[in-house]
């Protein structure tokens, strides 16, 4: 059978997931592992399908919270990144602050948000926002700071303003960096949402998993994990696709490799 390298790559990705499930199932059966410790994937999928109507609103809630938090985080990240990346002074002043900020475990900020805004959607949105800001800031700032000085000279001698340069060179050049950070940020945003939902919410997948584990319904906990994984992969795939469309120029090497 002959396959294009791309189809082959897809096929292998799918096969690796199937293989993982198969091995998992086999290990559970072979060693007689209790469902309370590690449920078989078949069972998890069964629970997932049976409980889907009840899980859907929670999945939607988590998805909504994550996307809003992510969107706000990215917006803030771009603004901060542009400011830091286009001024040496801002870069030097703000960088230590950012590093310190990003080193704070995000678990620690959830209680603060809960005190400020009460339990529910708001702290979840804020947590996922806070957690997804940093990679965006760093990547945008790096992209801007690496503009070739000679090109900048060419443009400045033409009378270009800082804004002209940012608009025509800085931002487009930053696109590949931005998209790379978006793919990291979206998975982190899920982490933030679920974290907050586990601690302080009455809806969302994080909350479902919390309650299920209290009831020793381990299969349901895993069903929640599956949903998170599926949502994560779906959003990741969406951004990869947009990335390919927007920054194809930065990926010419893979194009060549495919021929």
């Amino acid at each position: 059978m002959k396959m294009s390298p791309k189809a082959r790559q897809r096929f292998l990705s799918v096969m690796s997931v199937v293989a993982l499930f198969l091995i998992w199932e086999l290990v559970c059966r072979a060693f007689g592992i209790s469902d309370l410790v590690l449920p078989k994937p078949g069972q998890v999928i069964k629970v997932l399908i049976e409980r889907l109507p009840a899980l859907m609103p929670h999945a939607t809630q988590t998805l909504f919270t994550t996307t809003v938090g992510f969107a706000l985080g990215v917006l803030a990240g771009i603004v901060i990144g542009v400011v830091i990346g286009s001024s040496k002074l801002a870069y030097d002043v703000a960088y230590p602050l950012l590093v310190g900020f990003s080193s704070i475990p995000k678990v620690a900020v959830v209680p603060i948000f809960v005190v400020w805004f009460g339990a529910g959607t708001v702290p979840a949105i804020l947590t996922s926002m806070v957690i997804s800001v940093f990679p965006v800031v760093v990547n945008v700032a790096t992209g801007l700071a690496t503009t070739e000085p000679e090109l900048e000279d060419v443009l400045r001698a033409l009378g270009a303003t800082k804004r002209d340069i940012l608009w025509n060179v800085g931002l487009p050049r930053t696109m590949p960096y931005l998209f790379a950070s978006l793919k990291i940020a979206i998975t982190l945003a899920f982490v933030g949402t679920v974290l907050s939902e586990t601690v302080a919410a009455n809806r969302g997948i994080g909350n479902v998993m919390m309650i299920a584990s209290g009831n020793f319904d381990v299969a349901l906990v895993f069903a929640g994990l599956f949903i998170l994984a599926i949502l994560g992969v779906a959003l990741y795939a969406i951004f990869s696709f947009i990335e390919l469309k927007v920054t194809g120029w930065a990926q010419r090497k893979t194009e060549f490799a495919m021929v």
Binding site: E148, E150, L151, D153, V154, A157, L158, N168, V169, P172, R173, M175, T247, W249, A250
Partner: peptide
């Protein structure tokens, strides 16, 4: 003012 350098610095996009 028009300028050109040894490095052509074309924008790849």
């Amino acid at each position: 003012v028009g300028m050109a350098f040894q490095n052509p610095t074309m924008l790849p996009w």
